[in-house]
Simulated scan of single mutants.
Amino acid sequence: MKLEIIVITGMSGSGKSVALHALEDAGYYCVDNLPPELLEAFIALEHAQHGHRVAVAMDVRSATALPLVPRQLKQLRQAGVAVRSLFLDASTDTLVRRFSETRRRHPLSRQVLQDGQQALVQTIELERELLAELREQSLVIDSSTLRPAQLLSYVKSLLPLPPDRLTLVFQSFAFKRGVPLDADYVFDVRMLPNPHYEPLLRPLTGRDAPVAEYLRQQAQVGQMLADVAQFLDHWLVPMARNHRSYVTVAIGCTGGQHRSVYLVEQLAQRFAGQWNTLLRHRELDGL
């Protein structure tokens, strides 16, 4: 059976341990904080002893060796290993709050000489720089607004998808709660007719039939849907040819309840037959 490996990286405090627990629950043999120098030897050993599914977490504690990882993952793919790379991220404000709440020291804190919150912010930005290359090659999950149960669900949703095929993630969100950090493309649909102003539709969402029918009848909504689909039709194939593994398309409206949800649902249906397709509703998934 083909060996599968999931490599989890990301910002300290972003939820890597939660993601690793999700994979352990799904039957993966997991190890945390594996030094990159040991990756190839570890995979060979664990494949022989524990089967065909392995997950490892690496972070900035191995900062000096992290530049090895992109080349290692490329070599593993060339050797026929099914590789997924997952990057957990969160906003700087969120990470500062999490470290303050847990009173834990950031792994890079000794490299910053100043004291207090300003030093923590600088440390987080340094970590972003060190992890930038790994982030570019991974599926990014922004955990800023996610509860642990949501993050568990997001990670588990990846597992049934073939890892050697481009994965297209459609995500709805509310601009009033900020733009998702994990978005590769962001489309603003706040100019479209808003069901919020229809009393009977206000308590519903874009997944409900009355809202979907209302939006389907709006010419502007149909044009926006066609424009986004045309853009993706044009560029997804070149990205896949360039060995791009993941693309996240975020659709935002004011409240993340109606217009963005409807468009994400429609786009996910439109592209499901061509690519691995996931859909997420940031403001609804936690309800």
Rank of each mutant, 00 (worst) to 15 (best):
L95P: 09
D115S: 06
T102C: 01
Q114D: 08
V121S: 02
G116M: 07
R98T: 07
D89F: 05
E125G: 01
F87E: 13
A90G: 11
T123K: 02
R98M: 07
R104N: 06
Q111Y: 10
V112L: 08
F87A: 13
V96P: 06
L95G: 14
A119I: 01
E101A: 14
R110F: 05
V96L: 14
L86H: 12
R104C: 00
L95R: 13
Q111H: 08
P107T: 08
I124R: 02
L113Y: 01
R104Q: 11
L113E: 06
D93N: 12
S91A: 15
L126N: 04
T123G: 02
D93T: 14
Q114L: 11
R104K: 10
L88A: 14
I124E: 03
F99I: 12
L120F: 04
S109V: 03
L88W: 12
H106V: 04
T94W: 11
T92S: 14
R98L: 10
Q114A: 10
T92R: 14
Q118K: 01
A90H: 12
T94Q: 11
L95I: 15
A90S: 15
T102G: 02
Q117N: 02
Q114R: 05
T94N: 08
R110G: 11
Q114S: 11
Q117L: 04
D89K: 12
I124S: 05
F87P: 12
L120C: 08
L120N: 07
Q117S: 09
T123A: 07
V112E: 03
S91M: 06
E125L: 07
S100F: 04
L113T: 13
I124D: 04
S100C: 03
L86A: 13
L95N: 09
A90P: 12
Q117A: 10
V112R: 02
F99W: 10
V96F: 06
S109G: 03
L88K: 13
S109Q: 11
T92C: 14
L108V: 02
H106C: 08
D115P: 04
Q111F: 07
Q118W: 00
R97Y: 07
R103C: 03
P107R: 08
R110V: 08
R98I: 10
S109I: 06
R103I: 13
I124N: 03
D93Q: 15
D89I: 13
R104G: 00
R97Q: 13
